[in-house]
Design a binder for these strands. Structure first.
Lengths: 345, 345
DNA sequence: GTTAGCACTCTTTAGTGTAGAGTGCTAACA
DNA sequence: TGTTAGCACTCTACACTAAAGAGTGCTAAC
């Protein structure tokens, strides 16, 4: 529906605006880019593009800036999948080598490098929703009155809580008890164990309420530990170097959004189905970021969603670059994760 | 060294400026406060106070604002220990009742209420530096190749790591090993155990490097877990509602400071010796907050520093109110902590 | 010692003029 | 019919000016 020339002009305007943050005028285009047509012709095309809703004009004597519709068209139809420069690739590779010790480090490092390369805020959500299977339990002695109740899953996770020993109960009785309960629960998915399932165990404990509630507490604690979502933010300061966020009130508003961890989580979880998701300006349903764009990608391991990466910035964002970076990071995380699980074997 | 009248005028200027954030002029004072003297007299006194270094003048035709020296004098000599309003007390009491489940909740809640009542940023540093004594270790079975190494301290803390079982070694051999090492280490302060101390243990393991390094790893992991300082921030957004922080660049600078967790920790740890510490404006040695004041208090339990509370804001701070709030919170945390350890008994 | 009076200083706000950038329209051209 | 040169027009940004307002410092009188 757009002519080749219109597409060309639109792309130039978008990319020039992304680079300079200044409205783009017809003369600028004619001067900077060699299209072989005069400013007047460009003006006519721009006028048409504005009617079609692709361009906005801040005021009569300013150049044009791209509308949300233009960015959408740009992302969907104009961008060709680019690749990173060798420099960028080397930067990322070294980045991880120096920093990664455990899983949290991976997410943390990813947040940092992502914000650094995108010059915007990065959000990394670690979904630790893994469903492990219950293996066995033990009471480790502590003192006369207390013991440590340990739950162990088949994949080697362990959780514990301190319990009161019923008066007069000996360690061998506790061991017996642990064995019996273990027999009942062994091999069960951790998240299917609830107070009802534990009811059988209750009989083992012969109605000792304290012991039972401790057991329940340890189980739910472990379940929650598994479900935990962790959010890593990077580059808040950088975001406020963007020329669109130089106003104190705007900064405060954005800070408000970034402080609400739950809102951020909701935002990231809203688009976990597709591979890569770009939400542009007014497409955002969350208040406070309607002049922002967000690019997010989920990262899966063995089919399970392990994390979500996202970059949040002004609609005037380097979509091409950010998308390439996220693409690469997605692949890279795979490698890093595999290395890590190798190391744990 | 100051006359009664000078003290009175100084106090009025400070408190008026704290309340309004506007330079205070001689006519304003004469109009608002009934001192029985004319603006001209007040002007003379103000002139003297300026010479003495207590007042500054932004420009010739503006009123006066208090200098750091004035705030210092105010805090040291003019403030009378005030008490909170019943409203405030009720607010705090309810605040904790609703929110506190575990230790981290206490710190988190404290940060929130502190920032809310001070209208500035609150910092709460939880020093978890407790030195527990090593009790015993165990190898819990996991699978043919791996076991879970558990370290238990006398106060019931437990830490673990997954270790490779040397080829062909049986569980009873592991148990034997654990018993022997336990005999050597039992009762030792956790932080005195290092690779040298573990050398004896090394002989027990008969030179198995893997096992030894796992043991070392578990011990250091546990030591680090003990040392962990945790920082809770509250009310960043509120700080930027203060009229002195309405400039985008100033906001960015402050954000930079608040993002540097290590700097904040150093700031808080710098004044842990005294009970209550007020650092005013240029007294601050950390860059970026030289127009800020910080009020901090350490919270001790059984003589050990458990946490540090602090409020960071512009030098124009409601010292009186903040000091009372921190006073109260300090006492209140004591109560909450005791309740918590009661519950754990 | 206190105070009224007054000149002086400085900020703030509104208003004016100008340069510069960019557009839209029209008429001429290929 | 598409393209372009030319020109009037619009709007912003910036500099400059003027006037109002707040507050001081000084002096002379009480």
């Amino acid at each position: 529906m757009l002519s080749d020339r219109q597409r060309q002009i639109l792309q130039i305007i978008i990319e020039d605006y992304i680079a300079t943050a200044e409205p783009v005028g017809s003369r600028t285009i004619a001067r900077k880019y060699n299209l072989g047509i005069s400013p007047a012709t460009i003006r006519n095309e721009m006028s048409d593009l504005e009617l079609l809703g692709f361009l906005d004009q801040p005021h009569t004597s300013a150049g044009r800036i791209p509308s949300s519709k233009a960015y959408r068209y740009y992302v969907d139809s104009l961008i060709k999948p680019g690749s990173l420069t060798p420099n960028d690739i080397a930067l990322i590779d070294n980045w991880y080598k120096e920093r990664v010790r455990n899983i949290d480090d991976i997410f943390q490092s990813t947040a940092k490098i992502l914000s650094r390369m995108s010059k915007n805020v990065s959000l990394v959500l670690a979904n630790k929703e893994t469903t492990s299977k219950f293996s066995y339990m033990r009471f480790l002695p502590l003192n006369e009155h207390q013991a440590i109740l340990c739950l162990i899953t088949e994949d080697g996770q362990i959780d514990n809580c301190v319990v009161e020993i019923p008066l007069g109960m000996q360690q061998d009785e506790l061991d017996y008890l642990a064995r019996n309960i273990t027999n009942k629960l062994h091999g069960m998915n951790l998240d299917t164990i609830d107070s009802e399932v534990l009811h059988d165990a209750h009989q083992e404990i012969q109605g000792d309420k304290m012991l039972f509630s401790s057991l329940l507490k340890a189980v739910t604690q472990m379940q929650q530990g598994q479900k935990k979502e962790k959010m890593f933010l990077g580059g808040t300061k950088q975001l406020f170097n963007q020329p669109e966020f130089q106003d104190a009130n705007r900064i405060k508003e954005l800070l408000g959004v970034l402080e609400e961890e739950q809102v951020l989580k909701d935002m990231l979880n809203a688009g976990t189905n597709s591979g890569l998701r770009v939400t542009i300006g007014s497409e955002n349903t969350f208040t406070g970021i309607q002049d922002c764009s967000m690019i997010q990608a989920t990262y899966r391991l063995n089919g399970q969603v392990v994390g979500t990466l996202a970059v949040l910035g002004p609609t005037r964002m380097e979509y091409k670059k950010v998308i390439s970076v996220m693409d690469y990071l997605q692949k890279y995380m795979h490698v890093v994760f595999n290395k890590m699980s190798e190391a744990n074997k």
